[in-house]
């Protein structure tokens, strides 16, 4: 993307059962949202390793989104509870070393929340745009 119109690049980890299905619903409902987030479907938010988030930032992501089923609705019963704890640590650590709070985001989006998914992406892009490119953790060669 060109320099003059900066568009943040987002890697979005979506759990297969809720958030990816919710994103599908946004599609079926033709709800328009920015094209900045590229989805990666994972079995469960609980399968998202903290390494994935650090890796995405290092490879030049301006923002990373992890989205799973609402608490209590996990297809795998407990995966999102584990994700919540692990990713809390990631969020705290990123802020601690001085990475902007809004670079990492987590959401619960159910299969019925197409509109919410679109809203989450839109808000994320709106929050990222004024920050400019993420250079802090980006590898020079990325």
């Amino acid at each position: 993307m060109s320099e003059q119109t900066y568009e943040p690049k987002i890697v979005a980890f979506l759990c297969k059962w809720c958030s990816s299905a919710g994103s599908d619903l946004a599609g079926v409902s033709r709800i328009q949202y920015p094209a900045n987030a590229t989805p990666i479907q994972v079995p469960c938010s609980g399968s998202v390793s903290p390494m994935y988030i650090l890796s995405a930032l290092k490879k030049g992501a301006d923002g990373v989104l992890v989205s799973g089923c609402h608490i209590g609705d996990c297809h795998y019963l407990e995966g999102n509870y584990l994700a919540r704890r692990k990713l809390h640590l990631v969020k705290e650590l990123l802020q601690f070393v001085g990475i902007e709070e809004n670079r990492f985001r987590m959401s619960w989006v159910s299969a019925a929340e197409g509109a919410k998914f679109a809203e989450v992406v839109k808000e994320f892009v709106d929050d990222l745009r004024p920050m400019g490119p993420q250079e802090k953790l980006k590898a020079k060669r990325a």
Binding site: S20, D24, G27, V28, R30, I31, Y33, A35
Partner: peptide, 15 residues
């Protein structure tokens, strides 16, 4: 998935 998660939710052809 380039339909529900792409073609149906964006208008700009380049993007």
């Amino acid at each position: 998935n380039i339909r529900e998660q792409c073609a149906w939710v964006h208008k700009d052809r380049t993007e």
